[in-house]
């Protein structure tokens, strides 16, 4: 695609700006910032990927993945500000999910072990884990605020911290997975997934593109479930103090 074609595609942003102005939606600033930011970010990533692929060095790939995980963990950790070691817990969770998923894909030779495949697929795994971590923390906080009394009740009857938080943890894990599961239910019926569309546009056989997309769907489902469950079990002990009292005052 030529640069001129990309410039023309900014016409869509101008249309959105016009609508925002006409209906006084007040989205103008956000639309401009988001568009510029997306352009800059994607071009930078494009050049970095070109460089990494050019090196053809496993350490360059590992460094790239590490940076992706750190950025994702930083982003999700904002939702858990004030919780003990929240960045490291998310970092560990995403790293574990990435290692397990990639280990499975590469170990069974489902995908070739080339930087192109590893980094692109990792982007999807890490991105999905980051969204799930955000959703999970958001929901957990809401549930705890609403159901603090239940936790207190179970503790007061001699229950352990795990017993007191388990129903809330379970609900938060379930809720954080709903968007992923619901999204996959209508896949292909409502929208064609971005990656599959990209492959088809690039000239790949649609059936081959579907096969690859199925791999991604299954992988995302497992990565999302793993993220929510591992994160849940890493986080809950930090919600209590050493006297087994719910202590979430510092959670902003």
């Amino acid at each position: 695609m030529s640069l001129f074609a990309i410039l023309l595609s900014f016409g869509f942003v101008i249309l959105a700006l016009f609508l925002s102005q006409a209906f006084k939606l007040g989205l103008g600033r956000d639309l401009i910032i988001t568009s510029i930011r997306a352009t800059i970010q994607l071009f930078i990533v494009g050049y970095i990927l070109k460089m990494v692929f050019g090196f053809d060095n496993p350490f360059a790939v590992i460094l790239m993945l590490l940076i992706m995980i750190i950025v994702a963990a930083e982003n999700a950790a904002k939702r858990g500000k004030g919780l003990p070691y929240i960045f490291w817990k998310i970092f560990l969770t995403i790293s574990f999910v990435e290692i397990i998923t990639q280990g499975f894909l590469l170990g069974l030779q489902i995908v070739p072990a080339t930087p192109q495949y590893i980094i692109s697929i990792s982007g999807m795994i890490i991105g999905s884990s980051m969204v799930i971590a955000n959703l999970f923390l958001n929901r957990l906080k809401g549930e705890l605020e609403m159901r603090k009394e239940e936790v207190l009740l179970v503790l007061s009857l001699g229950g352990s911290i795990k017993q007191s938080i388990y129903p809330i943890l379970k609900q938060s894990i379930r809720s954080s997975l709903i968007p992923t599961i619901e999204g996959q239910k209508t896949i292909g019926l409502v929208q064609l997934p971005g990656m599959m569309t990209g492959q088809i546009i690039a000239g790949a056989d649609p059936i081959q593109a579907v096969r690859f997309q199925l791999l991604i769907v299954f992988m995302i489902l497992s990565a999302a479930s793993l993220t929510a469950i591992i994160l849940g079990f890493l986080i809950y002990p930090g919600l209590f103090n050493r006297h087994q009292q719910l202590d979430i005052q510092a959670w902003k």
């Binding site: 009394e149 239940e150 207190l152 009740l153 179970v154 503790l155 007061s156 009857l157 001699g158 229950g159 352990s160 017993q163 129903p167």
Partner: peptide, 28 residues
């Protein structure tokens, strides 16, 4: 906490039947 029981003003109940609630300390 089993030895020193506490009863609260609003008698909080967990989701479920009276039996589920009554048997909670044993289940714990």
């Amino acid at each position: 906490r089993r030895l020193v029981g506490i009863a609260f003003q609003d008698a909080p109940m967990l989701k479920g039947t009276s039996l589920d609630n009554l048997s909670l300390p044993a289940r714990l």
